[in-house]
């Protein structure tokens, strides 16, 4: 059940939706310019598919799918690696006991991903520092610090660095009126516009977005380290030594 109100101002139409808790939320979109799916959308889809196939075809022409020697259960290659998309996990296995890295963390990730849409709408849509600023500052700084300490305890440097970076970025947005660190950068006139843009972008991010960014950065870095920087005995190597 929803009610659409008339416009209050002459120029800005506004709508107020009254939602019953038990009703599924559903909003009518405003009037938009529509085009025919066929051919406009379809042809774009076809082109996208063609380009995908062209790229895949080219890759397949120049790079052969790997095929090593016949499986030999008596001879473990060094290093023995899982498929690349699991190498972030394998990297974590290097630091944590298998129950943590192999089960707990992936399970938490999946659960976290699944419950994302069930957060309260308003809580997560707000940009991070829009309200209850001091409380959030202490809470978040404490949380980030604890996480960093935890990672440092297990010497998970590959995860610690991006965590610290994201944490720093997140907190650097806090003093937005004085602009703190960013203000200093912004005063350098040549880059002023760029940094203003970045700052504005970051300041608009909600807490959920910050957490997601942290997760994606972490996943990418761990996977890259596991894939490209790990050699015999899971020791650190440079990619060209692999």
């Amino acid at each position: 059940m929803h009610v659409e109100s008339g416009s209050q101002g002459a120029t800005l139409p506004q709508r107020v939706a009254l939602l019953h808790r038990q009703l599924p939320a559903r909003l009518e979109a405003p009037e938009e310019k529509l085009v025919m799916t066929f051919p406009h959308l379809i042809v774009r889809e076809v082109i996208a598919m063609e380009i995908l196939l062209i790229v895949l075809g080219l890759v397949s022409l120049f790079y052969d799918a790997p095929l090593e020697s016949l499986a030999n259960p008596n001879k473990t290659p060094n290093p023995a690696k899982a498929p690349w998309y699991f190498l972030g996990l394998q990297e974590l296995l290097h630091y944590f006991p298998p129950v943590v890295a192999g089960v707990l963390i992936p399970a938490l990730v999946v659960i976290a991903l699944i419950i994302i849409p069930y957060f309260r709408v308003n809580f997560e849509r707000d940009s991070l520092w829009s309200q209850r600023r001091p409380a959030r500052l202490y809470g978040l700084s404490g949380g980030v610090l604890l996480l960093i300490l935890f990672l440092a305890w297990f010497r998970v440097w590959a995860a610690l660095a991006p965590t610290a970076l994201i944490g720093l970025l997140m907190i650097s947005i806090f003093p937005s009126r004085e602009r703190g660190l960013w203000g200093f950068l912004i005063h350098r006139t040549a880059w002023a516009r760029f940094f203003t843009g970045v700052h504005a972008g970051l300041a608009g991010l909600s807490l959920a977005a910050w957490i997601m960014s942290w997760f994606i950065t972490l996943a990418v870095i761990l996977t890259v380290v596991g894939t490209l920087f790990r050699g015999p005995g899971w020791s650190f190597v440079w990619p060209w030594q692999l």
């Binding site: 406009h40 042809v43 774009r44 076809v46 082109i47 063609e50 380009i51 196939l53 062209i54 075809g57 080219l58 022409l61």
Partner: peptide, 23 residues
């Protein structure tokens, strides 16, 4: 729509070309 037609034409030709290499 003109750009799209051109893109469609070119990508179709490229597709044909790329997949003609293997045979």
């Amino acid at each position: 729509m003109r750009r799209i037609s051109l893109l469609f034409c070119l990508s179709s030709l490229a597709l044909l070309l790329v997949y003609a290499v293997t045979p």
